[in-house]
Design a protein around this nucleic acid. Structure first.
Length: 268
DNA sequence: CTGCCCCTGTAA
DNA sequence: TTACAGGGGCAG
């Protein structure tokens, strides 16, 4: 999935598509997507509502409509994009929102792991309450980050991916940030010095800031989050290839059931 | 902490 | 055929 930068790019697409629009009705093609709400409950909740704003926190998308909020999570393969002709919805579409200008916003999701839900303020506030600060928000300060990491006994890679501490990093950017900060993903936060934690904080912010620009620029083809020059991981997905910094071989290990890529030479 | 689950697609 | 995929919730 889309991690913070790609989700941000999707938010911009949604904002542009829904600006000044009203959702006439919604169609659910995969009922799991809105569970535990039934498709008709969900559709009824958003039908006829005028769009207000889009908010993002980490990888969560809140589409505020008049009177109700549409909470969306793209998980692994979710994606929003506008279509001109609502009848020509692709087979992978999980849901579609038909708008008052005759166009539609499609929620596409080949794997169907994504989440759509109509929520009231109390619910989405509770949801946000479980999340740490967005990695690109002013609340994500070096002090706060270092303080939290300092008391964590989990491997730092897992700490970074835990949305309760900082929201937005996933498997790719966690690995890339650690490479950039030259920190071994197996170390625990408590075992890292303050200087290294501050360096990691800076690496995260710099990496994501840059990636937001690339992702938004690259965002054109539905389902494709970054292509070409815009996305060149240094370590992610590059097992046994050469490290761009030291030319040593990149390694793959498993942490929390997911692949971690790192350069043993650079990251200690 | 690990492993399994949700689902489908793709590559080895 | 198997392993793996940028996520996350759950049970043990």
């Amino acid at each position: 999935m889309p991690e913070l930068p790609e989700v941000e790019a999707v938010c911009r697409v949604v904002r542009r598509a829904l600006k000044d629009r009203r959702i006439v009705f919604a169609e659910i093609f995969r009922k799991r997507i809105c569970a535990p709400q039934t498709p008709s409950q969900f559709a009824r909740a958003v039908a006829g509502r005028r769009f207000q704003s889009v908010e993002r926190r980490g990888k969560n998308i809140l589409i505020h409509l008049e009177g109700v909020t549409l909470w969306a999570h793209l998980r692994m393969t979710g994606d929003f994009y506008p279509v001109a002709v609502p009848r020509l919805t692709p087979p992978t579409a999980a849901a579609q929102f038909v708008l008052d200008n005759g166009r539609a916003l499609v929620f596409d999701d080949p794997r169907g792991l994504g989440v759509l839900r109509a929520v009231k303020p109390a619910q989405w506030k509770r949801l946000l309450g479980t999340l740490g600060p967005d990695a690109l928000s002013p609340e994500f300060t070096a002090e706060r980050f270092a303080g939290l990491a300092k008391s964590s006994r989990a491997p730092i890679k897992l700490f970074l991916m835990d949305q309760r501490w900082v929201a937005g990093l996933g498997n790719i950017y966690a690995a890339e940030a650690l490479f950039r900060a030259r920190i071994d993903p197996r170390h625990c936060g408590a075992g890292l010095g303050r200087a290294r934690l501050l360096r990691l904080h800076r690496a995260i912010v710099a990496l994501l800031t840059n990636a937001v620009k690339s992702a938004s620029l690259a965002y054109r083809r539905p389902g494709v989050f970054a292509e070409g020059e815009t996305f060149r991981p240094a370590v992610y997905g590059r097992e046994d290839r050469r490290c761009p910094a030291c030319a040593g071989l990149i390694r793959r290990i498993v942490q929390g059931g997911r692949s971690t890529f790192f350069c043993p030479g650079c990251q200690s």
